[in-house]
Each structure stands twice: as C-alpha cells, then as structure tokens.
Design a protein around this nucleic acid. Structure first.
Length: 259
DNA sequence: TTGCATGTTCCGGA
DNA sequence: GTCCGGAACATGCA
C-alpha cells in the first residue's frame, strides 16, 4: 500500500539492517518484478558489494552501493522485509538479497512495479528525471508556485508524481479533507490561505505517517473511516461522499469541502 | 462470482 | 498543448 510514508519505512529497514553488509548474492524467484534487468545481471552487479546509506525520493527507494544502485518501486502491494533467521520464504518473495547477516526480501503480490538496476548515479538521475520534488522536502514557496495558475483539479495535481513526488490516493484525500477543499476544485483557484494550510497539513500528516511507517487508519482522520460503508465525517458527522474517477476512489465530505 | 484495491503508463477523446 | 477517463498490468480479498 505504499505511499511516501511506507517507502520511508522500507528505507529504514535498509538503513538499520543492510548498510555496510556485504551482498553474497541475489535470488530472483519471479522475473515479473524485474524492469530492464535480469537475474544474472542483478547478481553480477551486486555480489560482493556493500550497501551504502539508502535514499528515498517520493515513492522511489534507492539502495546504492557506491557502484550500481538498486532502484525499487513498490506499486500498490510491494514491501521490503528484513529476515535475520531462516524464516521460510513467502510465495510473494520475488527478489531476495542475501547479505552476510541475513536476507532482504522484496515481497509483492501484484507486481505492478518492481526493481530496476542503475549502473551509476547518472542512470539514477535518468530514471527519476520525470519525478517532481519530494513532498517532504519541498519548500513553501515551491509548493505555492506549483499550485498557482494550475488549471487541473487539485487532487489530480497532488497525486501527479511528476509535479510532486510521494502523495498517493489516501494522502491526497486526507489532506484535502483536513483543509476543507473539494478534490475537484481547480488548483489555481485555491486562496493564499488554503494553499498555506494545505502545505502545513501535508507536512503534519506526512510526519505523523512517516513515524508510523504507513498511512495510519487513525481515529479522527479520514483514513480511519474511509473503508467503512456509510461512516460519517469524523469532523462534522455528516455523510461522506464517494466517487471513482480514472479507477481511483475518492472520499470527501460535501459539508466540510464545498465545491 | 463480482467488484474493488493506497500505483504507473498508455491511449483516445474533448 | 491540456486535461480527463478508461484500460491494462497481476493478484488477493470481501
């Protein structure tokens, strides 16, 4: 279910367990998650290398070695786990990085995204060339400039990874609900005050979610009720509205978020 | 059995 | 060119 906070959690898994560990080898049990590389190329590039401090940009996780970098994207169902012992492999463990202290496992059922191999930092830059600024790093001024003059719907803009990297469907709904902005309003139509509050809420929600390592279904948040049929708005108690556009579900409160 | 799922990409139409 | 919705990708779950 990865949005920025989940990927940040996976980054911590790498940072805690894999940094400085030597890679013994890479096992690929399903090539369906490899993008532009092969099991042999992955193993050849990584065996003997040591992971350096991992980085995250938006929903991308970058596991560098000083040489090649493993570039991971988790789609909707991916995750990264550390297994120190000999826990049996899960059927969805598609790629296993065998390190000298244990295993790092890329687990993913739907295989909507996967693992790429960047030979050097230039190749990493090329992979991320179309990705916008990270939602946790973007400054207030840059965020403001992004929205000002944009004619697109605010939700479409917030979830467009080439505009702003890291927010997904749940986070976008959560933020707009908190700020009281209807998801279909043109981004450029938001007031100075709405833009300011949206930025502040984005930072607040992201910080809390990063601490949890996921987008938490928390009481008092929209996330806490969005999966319940007929659940009332946690703020005003009124009925929530639900629609689908382009395959994405949208939940909002027509009272708190007028058109 | 059918519909739905927190992601991205590609395509056609307005 | 811009924006939007739908389909596709592959799989599990209610």
């Amino acid at each position: 279910m990865p949005e920025l906070p989940d990927v940040e959690g996976f980054r911590r898994v790498l940072a805690e367990h894999a940094v400085d560990a030597r890679v013994r080898g890479v096992d690929v049990t399903d090539t369906g998650v490899l993008r532009g590389t092969t099991p042999a190329a992955l193993d050849r590039a990584l065996a003997g290398q040591r992971f350096t401090e991992p980085r995250r940009h938006g929903k991308w996780l970058l596991a560098g070695t000083g040489g090649p970098t493993v570039v991971m994207h988790f789609g909707m169902t991916g995750s990264l786990l550390w297994c120190a012992g000999d826990e049996p492999r899960h059927p969805h463990d598609r790629v296993i990085f065998r390190l000298d202290r244990g295993e790092l496992r890329f687990r993913d059922s739907r295989k909507l995204q996967g693992i790429r191999l960047a030979e050097n930092d230039d190749a990493v830059d090329r992979l991320l060339a179309d990705t916008g600024p990270d939602a946790l790093s973007i400054g207030r001024g840059e965020f403001d400039a992004l929205l000002t003059g944009a004619r697109r719907r605010i939700k479409a803009l917030l979830t467009d990874q080439s505009a702003l990297a890291g927010l997904g469907n749940l986070l976008a709904d959560e933020l707009l609900w908190r700020v009281g902005v209807h998801p279909a309003r043109p981004a450029g139509e938001l007031s100075e005050d709405e833009r300011a509050r949206l930025y502040d809420e984005m930072r607040r929600v992201l910080r809390a979610a990063v601490r949890a390592g996921r987008v938490p279904p928390r009481e008092g948040w929209l996330t806490g009720v969005r999966d319940e049929r007929d659940a009332p708005c946690p703020r005003c108690g009124g009925p929530l509205e639900r629609t689908r556009t382009a395959g994405r579900s949208t939940v909002w409160c027509p009272r708190c978020q007028p058109r």
